[in-house]
Design a protein around this nucleic acid. Structure first.
Length: 586
RNA sequence: GCGCUUGUAGCUCAUCUGGAUAGAGCAUCGGCCUUCUAAGCCGAGGGUAACAGGUUCGAGUCCUGUCAAGCGCACCA
């Protein structure tokens, strides 16, 4: 309907331009919006006010001129000027009924569109370091990334979901060494665990499995392992130097092959856990991309050479620096360290270049603590001759957990965190998924565990699901009474739906497709969850005011059943996109 | 100190990218189950949109400044 009105308005403008009433060079951006107040009709347009200045005329006069030149349309019952120059359109409610037919024709595809035109886009999200289980902070990124992917897919993009696995680098070495030390303990050695090591219980588990599989193959004495190692922080030393020394010692004593076995055991175990965890959260990937593979297949060298060739690299203090300040970054960044190792930044540049080369536009979902990282990645893309506009970084503010009214501190290293798995077990994946995307992603979010676990009606997910379940319940009641639902009869009798609740409900159904597009284009799943809540409200209100099973008026009954089934379909479609169950009963 | 983000009802959040009288939920108060699930419905109260300026027909929305909160400012990832 919006596009139809826009088309009519465009025609009106054109004819006014030929008449010389409006300057010919104007090509106004026609904006049409739903009205908030029913007394303003169904749709409103601010066109006349937009034209007032360039046309140098009173907006209300322009509005009148536009209306006079508007081609006739049988579904428009009234057009009027309001306020400072709004053009308000009143639509014949019966014309809105057509949406119900489309809902049944398109079924679970209703609402989808092709605005993306099959464009390839990669959504990279979560990508937490595989150094421990996912915690509730990652949960928000997971829910958000997965839902964004669903929304883009529903609006015609070809979506590729990817998890970038940081399987290289110092953090992973710390993990591997932590596992080894726990393994030594399991073998009976006594040692002081490094303050900077990973202390979670899962490290013990991996170590135990390692001992199970390899017995004491990797055993070394504590005396040998800690010989000449600089002091840890509690002993007055530097914890970073201490752990780095232990890593070197591990590599030295174990040798490359054995070190790799332990390292990979840790990596694979944790990755398997993360994969399983996300699956239970309804999040699945098309690809798990290994950072190490970038090193092995030369992608990093390729990217670095490209940067060097661009003339934006220089050497200083034995390291290679990328001159990102030339592209608006705060400072230049090291790409190759003085010890010859490439930095994480180098991997990331290579990863982004590689993804663009694969033909994808990129959407990265990052924790907002990484926001300072965005300019340098864009700078690198620009320097390598790529279009930085092809990279969109969406920042997700980590949720702050509250339990017993107290803020919970979390840290992966210390092993003190609420895991995503625990959250799922407590409140269920559905509630967690819905809760996470209810708010704008960059908004700080308080996650009150007591509230979420109480399963109270505070959680709006129940409200939406209940609407769906209620329709199912009505249908069950219907068959228990020996009656049947005849959709064709219902569709033929939609004209009987003239009651206020019915008109409102149908109006809401009409808005779903554009709402979906809007949510997708703005990467804002919360728009969809808000819409679903409104739709559920319309339905519950209708449910309480009218009976659907009315045996003495078959045509009206069939029409109403048709309406609520259409409503059920849209609720189900929307919940589905949010990765949430649409239950038949509750 | 510099940069990014945020500031809307007691609480948690919307406000369709600048539109008409700023809306929901929770909490509070008052009503509705012999009738398709009361996890529901109907109604009431609750606001200087942090603060101060500016831009224009019009600003919660854009610009400037102030204040407050979060995050970031590595040859870590």
């Amino acid at each position: 309907m919006k596009t139809r009105l826009a088309h009519l308005l465009q025609q009106a403008i054109s004819s006014l331009q030929t008449q010389g009433e409006l300057p010919a060079e104007l090509s106004p951006n026609i904006q049409i919006e739903h009205t908030r107040d029913a007394s303003h009709g169904d749709y409103a347009c601010n066109l006349a006010m937009m034209l007032a200045k360039p046309a140098k005329k009173n907006p209300r006069l322009i509005a009148q001129a536009i209306i006079d030149n508007l081609p006739a349309d049988s579904d428009i019952t009234k057009v009027e000027i309001a306020g400072p120059g709004f053009i308000n359109f009143f639509i014949n409610p019966l014309s809105q009924h057509a949406i119900i037919n489309s809902i049944f024709q398109q079924g679970e595809r209703f609402g989808t569109s092709n605005v993306g035109q099959g464009k390839k886009v990669q959504v990279e999200f979560v990508s937490a370091n595989p150094t421990g289980p996912l915690h509730v902070g990652h949960g928000r990124g997971a829910a958000y990334g997965a839902t964004i992917s669903n929304l883009l897919s529903a609006t015609g993009y070809q979506v590729h979901r990817e998890y970038y696995v940081n399987d290289a680098g110092r953090q992973m070495d710390i993990l591997g060494t932590s596992v080894w030390l726990r393994y030594l303990e399991a073998c009976g050695e006594t040692l002081t665990f490094p303050s900077n090591g990973y202390k979670g219980s899962y490290v013990h588990d991996i170590a135990a499995a390692l001992k199970q599989a390899h017995a004491d193959k990797f055993l070394q004495t504590t005396a040998l392992v800690f010989h000449d190692i600089c002091d840890d922080e509690p002993a007055g030393g530097d914890k970073e130097q201490h752990i780095d020394a232990l890593i070197s010692r591990a590599k030295e004593l174990l040798g490359n092959d054995h070190y790799r076995i332990i390292f990979d055991a840790a990596l694979n175990s944790i990755l398997a856990d993360i994969r399983d965890d996300l699956k239970g959260f309804g999040v699945e990937y098309d690809n798990w991309f290994s950072e190490r593979s970038l090193m092995d297949n030369g992608a990093i060298d390729k990217a670095i050479n490209k940067l060097k060739a661009s003339g934006h690299m220089y050497q200083k203090d034995g390291a290679w620096w990328f001159k990102s300040t030339e592209f608006g970054d705060e400072k230049d960044r090291v790409v190759i360290r003085d010890n010859g190792q490439t930095t994480y930044f180098a991997s990331d540049i290579a990863y982004h270049l590689h993804t663009l080369d694969r033909g994808f536009d990129i959407i990265d979902v990052w924790g907002s603590d990484h926001h300072g990282y965005v300019p340098r990645v864009k700078a690198a893309l620009l320097a390598m001759g790529a279009d930085p506009e092809r990279l969109k970084v969406l920042l997700v503010q980590f949720a702050v957990l509250y339990k017993n009214g107290e803020k919970m501190q979390m840290s992966t290293r210390s092993g003190q965190f609420v895991t995503l798995r625990e959250l799922r077990e407590e409140i269920g994946a559905d509630a967690a998924r819905y809760f996470y995307v209810m708010r704008k992603s960059e908004q700080h979010m308080d996650f009150d565990l007591d509230l979420a676990t109480s399963q109270s009606n505070e959680n709006p997910l129940f409200y939406v699901q209940y609407a769906h379940a209620r329709v199912c319940s009505v249908m069950r009641q219907l068959s228990e009474k020996g009656l049947s639902y005849q959709r064709e009869d219902g569709l033929a009798n939609l004209a009987k739906l003239t009651e206020t609740h019915e008109i409102n409900l149908i109006d809401s159904l009409n808005r779903y497709p554009e709402k979906l597009q809007q949510a997708a284009q703005n990467y804002e799943p919360h728009q969809l969850s808000h819409y679903l809540r409104e739709l559920a409200t319309q339905f519950h209100s209708y449910y309480n005011s009218q009976k659907f099973i009315i045996e003495d008026d078959q045509p009206l009954m069939q029409a109403r059943l048709t309406l609520i089934n259409a409503c059920k379909q849209v609720l189900s479609n929307g919940l589905n996109l949010l990765g949430v169950e649409a239950p038949e009963s509750m």
